[in-house]
Each structure stands twice: as structure tokens, then as C-alpha cells.
């Protein structure tokens, strides 16, 4: 039994950064903006979080600063694409390239230092409960935030007025503008939120997953998060399922190897990407579902005319 619990805990750890970054990006895309810079914001969060924890000795402060760093970095994207109406695809890509380079430079002095781990919760009695104790009461804070975030985002998007506003901006910015909504402001806020989430995802990598700073340590997880949003057809609940599915494959491939099931590792590694393409095709074919969930003005620039 213990073995299964510990496997599930590994899966949680592998899924959490994906879930955080994807949930943030989901909000961004729901507002009609495609930010391909998730990888860049994530790695900026990872380095900022690690550096802060090293300097202050407090991993929680590190996580907070990581969110700030992610948001600040996303502001660059927002300014270019929203204020200067630059191309979103190219700007997102620039954000990733810059983030990887900049984080490497910032982190130079922190390479090879043992990190400060954000410890898992340890509540007397509760954490010691059989089976559920560790799973429900014995994980790190960021894990709980990631789960709460999914439900929070769901509630926000579909149960609040502000959420409705955000979705209407994503679906048709021209008519939203006509209704008196400040399209640019809504999108700015969404992008900042996405940046903060990606930053926190990065902090999870450098403070919980492997408490150390390593250049390029996000290793493509930002791109997986992007894929996840589409995989989930822009639904928060499905992002949760998708992230844990990816996490399970990530951990599962090593277990498969260790018990002697020889599947080429390259095949398993490419599986998530192939799955995303399949899902993309399926949702695109299902017109009704597409209409319901896909933000119609995704990736299009908006200039308020006067």
C-alpha cells in the first residue's frame, strides 16, 4: 500500500507544475490572448524563487517572489501584444528565448548550491492517518494551491460576472468593446495572472521537485502546459485530468522500465504531444463543442478605434 501512496505522491509532484502553468494559460487564452511564452515565464519563476529562498532562507517568500517575477515578465508580453499590437505568436516565442537566456545569467551564482526545500505539511494526527493521511494532509503548499486554483478558476469563469466579462472579451472583442468593456485592461489582467501562475509553477520545480537551480531546468514543461490547455479544450476540470494523465505517463514510463516492460522511451515521451494533436482534431471536428469552449478571438490583436 505504501508503495502505491508513494507512487501517487510522485505523480502529484510531476503534475503540479503542469497544472499550475496550464490553468494560468487557460485564463489567458479564455481572454483571447495566446501567450506562447509559458516556458520563459516558468523558468524566470524558477530562478527568482530559488534565488530568493537562498538569500532569505524562506522558500515561501521564494514562491511569492517567483509569482511576482512571472507576472512582471509577462507584462513585457502584454505591453508588446496589447499596447503595441505586436504579433502574439512571435512575441511569445521571444519571451521564451529571452527567459531561458536571462534566467541562466541571473542564476549563474546559484548553480551547484543545495536548495532550500519547501517542506511537506506535517499536521499531527491528520498526516499520520492511514492511506489518506499523506495524500491529503502531507503534501507541499503549492500542491494545495494548484488544486484550489482549478476550482477557483472554474468558479470565476463560469459563476461570476467578471468571469463572464473575460470570456466575452475572448469570444468577440469587438462586441465586448461595443458593450463598454475595456478589452485591453481585461487582457492585461489575464496575462498577468497567467504569468504569476507560470512563475509559481517554476518555483515548484526549483523549491519542491528538485530543490536546486539548474539552467534550463523547465526542460519543455511550459510547452506541455500549453498543449494541456488545448488538450482540455479550455475547460479547467479537464486541465486537471490532463495534467494528472501527463504526470502519470511521466512517472509510469520509469516503472514500466523497472519492471522490465521495454517500450522505447522516445515513444512514451512523444505520447503526450501526439495525444494533444489527436484531441485538437477531435475538438475541431466537433463543431458544437468548439463553439462552446474555444475563445473565438484567440490570438487576434485588438485596437480600439476612436
Amino acid at each position: 500500500m505504501d508503495v502505491w501512496i508513494s507512487i501517487i505522491l510522485s505523480i502529484c509532484a510531476a503534475s503540479t507544475p503542469l497544472l499550475l502553468a496550464a490553468t494560468g494559460e487557460l485564463v489567458v487564452e479564455r481572454s483571447g490572448v495566446l501567450n506562447l511564452g509559458v516556458e520563459g515565464m516558468m523558468i524566470m519563476g524558477a530562478v527568482a524563487g530559488f534565488a530568493t529562498a537562498q538569500v532569505t532562507g524562506n522558500p515561501y517568500l521564494g514562491a511569492l517572489v517567483a509569482m511576482g517575477a512571472g507576472a512582471l515578465f509577462s507584462l513585457l508580453f502584454a505591453f508588446l501584444t496589447l499596447t503595441l499590437v505586436a504579433n502574439q505568436v512571435a512575441t511569445g516565442l521571444a519571451l521564451t528565448i529571452l527567459g531561458i537566456g536571462l534566467s541562466g545569467m541571473i542564476g549563474e551564482g546559484f548553480v551547484g548550491r543545495p536548495g532550500i526545500r519547501m517542506e511537506a505539511l506535517d499536521i499531527p494526527i491528520l498526516t499520520d492517518l492511514p492511506i489518506i493521511g499523506k495524500l491529503i494532509f502531507g503534501q507541499d503548499l503549492i500542491f494545495y494551491i494548484s488544486i484550489a486554483l482549478v476550482f477557483g478558476v472554474y468558479w470565476f469563469l463560469f459563476k461570476t460576472r467578471a468571469g463572464l466579462t473575460l470570456r466575452s472579451v475572448g469570444d468577440n472583442h469587438t462586441s465586448a468593446h461595443a458593450l463598454g468593456i475595456n478589452v485591453i485592461k481585461v487582457r492585461y489582467l489575464a496575462v498577468l495572472f497567467g504569468g504569476a501562475c507560470a512563475g509559481l509553477a517554476g518555483a515548484h520545480l526549483s523549491l519542491v521537485y528538485v530543490p536546486q537551480w539548474v539552467e534550463g531546468m523547465t526542460a519543455g514543461r511550459g510547452w506541455i502546459a500549453l498543449a494541456l490547455v488545448v488538450f482540455a479544450s479550455w475547460r479547467p476540470g479537464r486541465v486537471l485530468v490532463g495534467a494528472y494523465l501527463f504526470g502519470t505517463v511521466t512517472i509510469g514510463q520509469f516503472h514500466a522500465q523497472a519492471i522490465g516492460i521495454a517500450i522505447p522511451a522516445q515513444f512514451l515521451t512523444s505520447l503526450p504531444y501526439i495525444a494533444t494533436i489527436v484531441v485538437l482534431v477531435l475538438i475541431a471536428r466537433n463543431r458544437r463543442m468548439t463553439m462552446l469552449n474555444t475563445p473565438a478571438s484567440l490570438g487576434q490583436s485588438f485596437v480600439p478605434d476612436r
Binding site: 513585457l76 508588446l80 503595441l84 499590437v85 505586436a86 504579433n87 512571435a90 512575441t91 516565442l93 521571444a94 519571451l95 528565448i97 529571452l98 527567459g99 531561458i100 537566456g101 536571462l102 541562466g104 545569467m105 549563474e108 539552467e215
Partner: peptide, 19 residues
């Protein structure tokens, strides 16, 4: 890493100037 930063910055400025 500076080379990467240069490339990222360059793309940013190109996009901004295109406006």
C-alpha cells in the same frame, strides 16, 4: 547565455518597432 538574451531582445525590439 548573453547571446540568447541578445536574440530574445532583438526579436522584442523588432516586433515593437514593426508597430
Amino acid at each position: 547565455r548573453a547571446a540568447r538574451v541578445f536574440q530574445g531582445l532583438l526579436l522584442f525590439f523588432v516586433l515593437a518597432c514593426d508597430t
